[in-house]
């Protein structure tokens, strides 16, 4: 686990991944994957080539157990999700509402350890569906950005979604991610002014995560009216791929988001079903049908 290894992203292109470290974002992803694009951008491109938005699903690692969380992700993949956002349970999840908050608390009480995320990633990565780890910053800082990136790359993970890390504070993580060719997914919010949208869009590799509403994760009766204008502003600020999450939980909402965004991120609705032991694969398939515009 401590060994620093580089993730071979194709048979012959391990050196390209290394070289990508110093290159600007666009060139980095191009240089990294001469064939089909790796990471989130590849998943979005594949969906786009099928004339639809990408479906992205969040589940916390270790809930209700490590095994069960891996099985649940596999059910989502069978149901057709294009990307897994694997949550790293953290003691102080300020961006999360009660559904995800209770699930990560349960995972921690059940003995979740950070190393479990790499184990789950290693088991899920061979499916070919990119695994992005969603984590608050402190577990990454505590492990060391470089070591965290090395472990994630060794497990075949695609990158990180970092809800409490803004580009200005991300120097060490960005350096490590660039070194290992990992996606860097930062968030934008309806309150972000244009200058911050440009800063964030420019810092992202994979996609830019647009939070649909001013608020925490959870179910909402209807899609926020703030989502579409935020996606448009983020594109205008230079983002190539913009995916929408926070407050997207039904097939109708997913279809609406798919009409204007590159990807649809659903979290709490899956977590709620998992907590209630309800069918995940079928719900994923329904959402997958909904994002085919």
């Amino acid at each position: 686990m401590n060994a620093v290894r580089f993730r071979p992203v194709g048979p012959d292109d391990a050196d390209d991944a290394l070289a990508a470290g110093d290159a600007p974002a666009e060139q980095a992803s191009a240089g990294r994957a001469p064939g089909p694009q790796a990471g989130a951008a590849g998943a979005i491109d594949r969906a786009r080539s099928q004339g639809r938005a990408a479906l992205m699903a969040y589940l916390p690692c270790g809930f209700p157990s490590l095994r069960a969380s891996i099985d649940a992700c596999q059910a989502l993949i069978r149901g057709g999700v294009d990307l897994i956002e694997l949550g790293l349970p953290y003691s102080d999840p300020v961006m999360d509402g009660p559904i995800i908050g209770e699930a990560v608390t349960a995972a921690l009480e059940a003995g979740f350890r950070v190393a479990d995320v790499f184990e789950a990633t290693a088991e899920l990565a061979p499916t070919g569906v990119p695994i992005e780890v969603m984590t608050y910053y402190n577990p990454v800082f505590r492990r060391g950005e470089e070591r965290f990136a090395a472990d994630l790359a060794a497990a075949g993970g695609a990158g990180l979604v970092t809800p409490d890390l803004i580009p200005e504070e991300s120097g060490a993580w960005v350096a490590a991610a660039d070194r290992f060719g990992l996606d860097k997914i930062f968030l934008v919010a309806p309150s972000s002014p244009e200058a911050r949208l440009r800063l964030t869009a420019n810092a992202c590799r994979g996609f830019t995560y647009a939070t649909s509403t001013m608020g925490v994760t959870g179910l909402r009766a209807s899609l926020s009216e703030l989502a579409r204008p935020l996606v448009e502003r983020t594109r205008a600020a230079g983002a190539e791929n913009v995916c929408v999450g926070v407050g997207v939980s039904t097939a109708d909402q997913a279809a609406e988001v798919a009409s204007f965004a590159d990807g649809v991120i659903v979290g709490s609705a899956f977590v709620k079903r998992l907590a209630a032991d309800q069918d995940l694969e079928g719900f994923a398939a329904d959402l997958r049908a909904a994002v085919a515009r």
């Binding site: 300020v94 803004i166 504070e169 968030l187 934008v188 309150s191 972000s192 001013m214």
Partner: peptide, 12 residues
């Protein structure tokens, strides 16, 4: 120090 919070709060 610094600001390790969600982007939604940065403007405020």
């Amino acid at each position: 120090g610094g600001r390790f919070v969600p982007e939604a709060l940065i403007a405020a």
